[in-house]
């Protein structure tokens, strides 16, 4: 106790000294970018990097931009279907299935589904280019020819499907992990009681499992919506928004506006929309976590 009293003045500053690197990095790469983006969105900055303030011009141009309606439509399709089918749907299915078999094999399948997530994105992109290769060499067309069906050129006939699949196989693993952990934490007595009542697997899933992991379901839905809305890495690698903007989404269009067309002012205005969504979603996210910890069902993996 003697030491502690002696060290007190130093102790008061100590946590902040320890936190200093964190604070510097956060200021530099989170706060400062937001601060810079705001004035930038009111300039016409282009190839020559000059700060020419043009008032609200960029924001007026967003609804005038003829590509924007298509971008919004694509973004909605991309987020909605990837979320429903994979990041949520597939995740729930996989977590239910892998927790219904032995933990060893359940764990094996979960590990398998983690593989896309830890594979470098460019390599992962190559895999999907091959799967949907429009010639007879692609996996999809091999399967179709085995089934006696004609070859498909997904890059043209349904490029969005390709994007949804590629993103979905990465996205499903997070929900799967969170839900599996939550399911494993459900006390066995609940199921035993249900079985005594003669409930089948589906009934137990519907009556016990899903209601008990509802917070996790909500959390993943909220989190993945934001994450999908702002991600563009895999689209950039696989189609770069093509053919002719048919797979272009808001986040990618923002990137292209700045880094391919060199319209930084307009790009900043477009990204401000993402920032607003990000902040709102972030606040909701915090709220969610809060609710969870008070409900005594804290997020643990």
């Amino acid at each position: 106790m003697v030491e502690k009293t002696k060290l007190r003045p130093f102790n008061k500053a100590l946590p902040w000294i320890l936190l200093l690197p964190l604070v510097i990095l956060v200021l530099m790469f989170y706060i400062l970018p937001i601060v810079i983006t705001m004035p930038l969105s009111f300039t016409s900055m282009g190839l020559s990097f000059k700060w020419l303030f043009v008032g609200l011009e960029n924001f007026r141009n967003i609804p005038r931009d003829p590509i924007i309606p298509q971008i919004i439509g694509n973004t909605f399709i991309y987020v909605f279907f990837t979320l429903i089918v994979f990041n949520f749907g597939m995740a729930v299915l996989l977590s239910l299935l892998t927790t219904s078999i032995s933990d060893r094999w359940g764990g094996f399948f979960r590990t398998l589904w983690m593989l896309p997530r830890i594979t470098p994105s460019v390599v992962y992109g190559l895999l999907w280019l091959w799967i949907f290769d429009p010639s007879k060499n692609g996996l999809l067309n091999i399967i179709l020819s085995v089934l006696g069906m004609p070859s498909q050129d997904m890059f043209h006939h349904n490029p969005m499907l390709l994007i949804v699949f590629a993103n979905g196989f990465v996205g499903a693993s997070m929900g799967m992990m969170v839900f599996s952990a939550a399911i494993k934490a459900i006390p066995i007595e609940y199921y035993r009681a249900a079985m005594v009542d003669g409930a089948g697997w589906f009934t137990m899933v519907r009556k016990i499992t899903l209601p008990l992991i509802r917070w996790h379901l909500l959390f993943i839905t909220a989190y993945e919506t934001l994450s999908l809305f702002t991600s563009y890495q895999y689209i950039l690698i696989i189609t770069n928004g093509g053919p002719v903007n048919r797979t272009n989404v808001w986040a990618l269009y923002t990137y292209q506006t700045a880094f391919s067309d060199f319209k930084f002012g307009y790009g900043a205005a477009l990204s401000l929309v993402l920032v607003v969504v990000g902040v709102i979603a972030g606040l909701l996210y915090i709220h969610n976590i809060h609710v969870e910890s008070t409900s005594g069902n804290a997020l643990e993996i």
Binding site: F29, Y30, P33, I34, T37, L40, Y223, L226, S227, F229, T230, S231, Y232, Q233, A251, T254, Y255, A258, F259, F264, G267, A268, S271, L274, V275, V277, G278, V279, A281, G282, Y285
Partner: peptide
């Protein structure tokens, strides 16, 4: 959760 990749400029 913040989308920093959208602040590339």
């Amino acid at each position: 959760a913040f989308p920093t990749v959208s602040l590339m400029v």
